[in-house]
């Protein structure tokens, strides 16, 4: 795999294609917006009494401030699964073979897809924070904090997108990629994405402690609710970066393997 000026342009073109096909297909983006927003609304209305009344609940202005980061992560997870499934559809439908058979840079096929995931993830984060602000939430960390939030979102989007690409390359079927979705969802719920770890007990608490999503969400959340500790933020960014690197590495390997089969 090589990288030069044309690869950058091709990446841009392929990313653009992925974004456009996502935007034009409502089934591809409606769930990624609808479910996180609805859950955020329901959790905020259900647990509005929690801050200040529950022992161990971190000091927040409102539950909405607390909830928005979890919604972003959930949206990126759903969007990433859809993107992985779309990539698998490309493989099933022959678009992928057409790309491989063309002089398009091998790297661009991968980076194009991941670039699209980043664009869609950032757009989602902006939208969710914007909507939360309308209902009285506020990013206490200011512009700097907001940039951290977007950085983690982007890294996590690369991680989920890369995992989706990896699964698509390994199984080559959209159904198989979609089949992994419940697992992602379980990972999300067994974390502190929706409720603070401090209030959990027993094995569930242990699971949430070890769950990388907990640390991602907490780093983002600290930037929203304020009083971010450098340690939490660095840990969150580092975990997001590690996940992104692992996923991209795995997808690059799977890509190379698939190409070797059909040189």
């Amino acid at each position: 795999m090589s990288w030069d000026g044309s690869a950058a342009r091709q990446t841009g073109a392929l990313a653009w294609r992925s974004v456009v096909t996502t935007v034009r297909l409502p089934q591809a983006w409606v769930p990624a917006l609808f479910f996180p927003l609805v859950l955020m609304a329901i959790f905020t209305a259900s647990f509005g009494g929690a801050p200040g009344n529950i022992p161990g609940f971190p000091p927040v202005r409102s539950f909405l401030d607390f909830a928005v980061s979890g919604a972003i992560v959930q949206g990126v997870l759903i969007g990433g699964t859809t993107a992985g499934a779309a990539f698998a559809t490309d493989i099933e439908g022959g678009f992928f073979d057409r790309l491989v058979a063309s002089p398009v840079s091998r790297t661009a096929i991968l980076t194009g897809r991941l670039g699209a995931s980043v664009v869609l993830g950032i757009a989602q984060a902006l939208l969710f924070v914007g909507i939360a602000e309308l209902f009285g939430a506020d990013v206490a960390g200011g512009p700097g904090g907001f940039m951290v939030l977007l950085l983690i979102t982007a890294l996590f989007a690369v991680a989920v997108g890369g995992l989706g690409v990896f699964l698509a390359l390994r199984f080559g079927s959209a159904e198989a990629v979609q089949g992994m979705f419940p697992l992602f969802f379980a990972l999300l719920f067994f974390s502190s994405a929706f409720f603070p770890r401090e209030t959990m007990t027993g094995w569930f608490r242990t699971a949430a402690d070890w769950n990388p999503i907990s640390h991602l969400v907490e780093a983002m959340r600290d930037e929203v609710v304020g009083g971010a500790e450098p340690g939490t933020v660095i840990a969150g960014v580092a975990i997001a970066l590690t996940l992104a690197v692992l996923a991209v590495g795995a997808s690059a390997l799977a890509f190379r393997r698939r190409l070797r089969e059909a040189p």
């Binding site: 529950i54 719920f189 209030t199 959990m200 569930f204 949430a208």
Partner: peptide
Amino acid sequence: PSLVMPLFILIATAGAFRGIAALP
């Protein structure tokens, strides 16, 4: 799914939100 989903909902809900039961 028909077996796992209700179990998942029970465990995830009861595990994640159990703190809320401290409300009066």
